[in-house]
Simulated scan of single mutants.
Amino acid sequence: MDYIHLKDMEFYGYHGVLAAETELGQRFRITMHIAVDLQYAGETDELDNTVSYAEVFSIVKDIVEGKPYKLIEAVAEKLASAVRNAYPAVIKGIQVEVIKPDPPIPGHYREVSVEITRGEFI
């Protein structure tokens, strides 16, 4: 299995359960690993035979900066579905991590995150 990685894409959104999250918003980092067969794309050198990083970034941006969700689990699910649906013939599986680096909860930690895997992923 081959992979395309988009690491630490950063956006500003309004997802969360707490009032501060939905009123003030916060940064979100998204890391995505996309399982694909890249051999044909490598042999043909044609974008149509792979996944466009620019299009994936745009899809992720629209979701993270768009409609607010209470749970980052829902954000992760929307991201995985939207990217897979954009390339149904190419993407074999996807792993999505949604990271809140600064959630408004007391305590000491680097970040909180969820990670989901959909489809084939080795």
Score class of each variant (00 low, 15 high):
residue 86 A to Q: 13
residue 14 Y to G: 05
residue 9 M to D: 10
residue 19 A to V: 05
residue 36 V to Q: 06
residue 64 V to R: 11
residue 79 L to A: 00
residue 109 Y to D: 02
residue 57 F to R: 13
residue 102 D to I: 07
residue 73 E to V: 08
residue 34 I to K: 04
residue 60 V to D: 01
residue 14 Y to E: 10
residue 30 I to G: 01
residue 102 D to F: 09
residue 24 L to I: 12
residue 78 K to Y: 08
residue 73 E to F: 12
residue 49 N to S: 06
residue 73 E to S: 07
residue 80 A to F: 01
residue 64 V to N: 10
residue 24 L to V: 03
residue 122 I to E: 14
residue 2 D to W: 04
residue 48 D to K: 15
residue 49 N to G: 02
residue 88 P to H: 11
residue 65 E to D: 07
residue 92 K to F: 02
residue 45 D to Y: 05
residue 88 P to C: 07
residue 28 F to V: 04
residue 113 S to W: 05
residue 39 Q to S: 14
residue 106 P to D: 15
residue 33 H to Y: 01
residue 30 I to K: 00
residue 101 P to S: 02
residue 25 G to E: 08
residue 116 I to L: 03
residue 31 T to G: 03
residue 49 N to P: 00
residue 11 F to Y: 13
residue 102 D to T: 07
residue 80 A to L: 02
residue 4 I to G: 02
residue 35 A to E: 14
residue 116 I to W: 03
residue 8 D to L: 09
residue 119 G to F: 02
residue 120 E to M: 05
residue 22 T to Q: 14
residue 105 I to P: 09
residue 38 L to G: 07
residue 47 L to W: 01
residue 38 L to V: 01
residue 114 V to M: 07
residue 108 H to M: 12
residue 96 V to D: 04
residue 72 I to M: 12
residue 112 V to S: 07
residue 117 T to M: 09
residue 73 E to H: 10
residue 35 A to W: 07
residue 32 M to G: 00
residue 85 N to F: 04
residue 54 A to E: 13
residue 117 T to C: 08
residue 33 H to Q: 10
residue 25 G to L: 03
residue 15 H to M: 02
residue 76 A to P: 10
residue 112 V to E: 03
residue 58 S to N: 15
residue 62 D to P: 11
residue 43 E to V: 07
residue 118 R to A: 13
residue 26 Q to E: 09
residue 23 E to A: 12
residue 92 K to H: 08
